[in-house]
Nucleic acid binder design. Sequence first.
DNA 1: CTCATTCACATCGTCGATAATATAACATCT
DNA 2: AGATGTTATATTATCGACGATGTGAATGAG
Lengths: 239, 239
Amino acid sequence: MLPSTLFSRAAAIGHGTAAETICNALRSAISENMLPAGQALPQAELANGFGVSIIPVREALKRLEAEGFVTSPPNRGAMVLGMNEADIEEYSRIRALLEEQAAADGVRNMTRVQLAQVEDAYEAFVEGVAAADGQRRSGALNRAFHNAIYVAAGRPRLFEMIDDLHTRLDRYIRGHLVIEGRKEVTDREHKAILDACRARDADLCARLTREHILEAAAISIEVMRRPKKKADRARSIRG
Amino acid sequence: MLPSTLFSRAAAIGHGTAAETICNALRSAISENMLPAGQALPQAELANGFGVSIIPVREALKRLEAEGFVTSPPNRGAMVLGMNEADIEEYSRIRALLEEQAAADGVRNMTRVQLAQVEDAYEAFVEGVAAADGQRRSGALNRAFHNAIYVAAGRPRLFEMIDDLHTRLDRYIRGHLVIEGRKEVTDREHKAILDACRARDADLCARLTREHILEAAAISIEVMRRPKKKADRARSIRG
DNA sequence: CTCATTCACATCGTCGATAATATAACATCT
DNA sequence: AGATGTTATATTATCGACGATGTGAATGAG
């Protein structure tokens, strides 16, 4: 059964074609872990929930399949695609490679106003995670900080690929800030990256960015392994 | 008007759903430069040509849109998406980054049989381009040689991304071997890369791979600029 | 009791037809 | 004449219905 919250946000996005709206709603739902890996996505149910026919649903699923969020074997129905540890690690290493490059080029080409925007994004992150709903917004704020550096690189295609990768990995790395003590570490690392931007040290910024990403990935994988017990317990309670 | 050769190959692929068949036919047609950038893709005409209704055509186009081969603004029809020089250069640099990594990891993890496969692929390329239809097959053979190294890296996701990038760039870099004297240079570079594999020198192989890609990209961009005159002349003759 | 076979069911894939939207050609007004 | 509003047309986006395909339960044989 699909969560009812999935359908409510479709009305809010409302723009463009129905297929587009559904595609975006599903993508963000998957990306935000509202739909777990393996979740079945029956066309009829989706069509009913969104109040449309199955045609736009099919097109949305086709697109999401191409983007790597769902798989839909012919005649067997679509389901949310999950990653295993190896995938997460591999994608994270690719992210490290690309973002390292974007960070270096970003620092090299950064104007004064762009540096100011990076500083603003840094402040926004610090204040944001300290706020009441900080846990929920921390992901977006973290992303905004790094993106502020990458846009300075002036590489729209590289930026796109980084953004895509981040969207695909989000549901796995989301929440790695919640772990005790991580907030301070992340803050320290962001500060170091910001200082590297100020000092116009492209190589340092690249190296710090790389380590920042690989560390976050390692922690996320570790966290992913840990709560297995809780799931098993929940299942044994239910069964 | 769409080229009639486009539709003939659909029957050959035949497997799976109609949408899939059409998607593959269009992708390879675009990738092989049969459909130039800016070419309009009217749903009705495609449906007629492939002998199906417009529904599978729409789904194929949606997928190709996600993959970056076509754009389809709402209610305005799909067209083949083209890249400008900046895009080609940017994507080529990303390719260099990723393939450099894949080459290094490939050499580090390469087994004896994998090395033998790389050697076979090298031989196949040399013999293939010398053959009668060498010009047509050179792209696939070149790709097979490099891929033989990358598979040894044991990184399926990285491999996927490299393959996707190559497919998207193919129509622009295809034919850069045709230029006078390039065949020998490419052969020499491949030989050097192969020797680096034999010597298990990962860093050297990575560096050579990087240079190989960036050089090919630079040449392709240069070629892309050159024949502008011919196009202008053709236009002036027609007008 | 286990395994293979058959058949009914559920879901997906495709079709023809209709509604919605953008492009253009045209008439109208200043 | 130039700009603007309007209609005609072509194309896309969507719908409801039908046919195709895979899944799982019931049945029978070994």
